[in-house]
């Protein structure tokens, strides 16, 4: 099972990103473990400068803006 973290301090785009990842995962029938990281220090530890950032299995795959559906599908 893939572990996906969404990094963000709670702006609207971060919530949209969470929702979109859940949707795509459901559509594809992939089980994922989705987490939200809101703590600033933990976010910075990933070296992400623009939020929302997305981390898949410990690797930063996206930073800044809501990712596209295709991009999310690619991670899954």
């Amino acid at each position: 099972m893939k572990n996906i973290k969404v990094l963000g301090t709670g702006c609207a785009n971060c919530k949209n990103t969470m929702k979109l990842i859940e949707e795509v995962a459901k559509d594809k029938g992939v089980e994922i473990q989705l987490e939200k990281v809101e703590d600033l220090q933990s976010i910075m530890a990933y070296g992400v400068m623009s939020t929302p950032g997305v981390v898949v299995d410990g690797k930063v795959v996206h930073a800044g803006g809501v990712p596209s559906r295709d991009k999310i599908a690619g991670w899954l």
Binding site: N13, L40, M44, G47, M49
Partner: peptide, 17 residues
């Protein structure tokens, strides 16, 4: 540079770092 006020702080830290 694209900028959203919600990422002002991560950006700030990233620059200083």
């Amino acid at each position: 540079t694209p900028f959203c006020s919600c990422s002002a702080v991560p950006l700030f830290i990233g620059f200083v770092q």
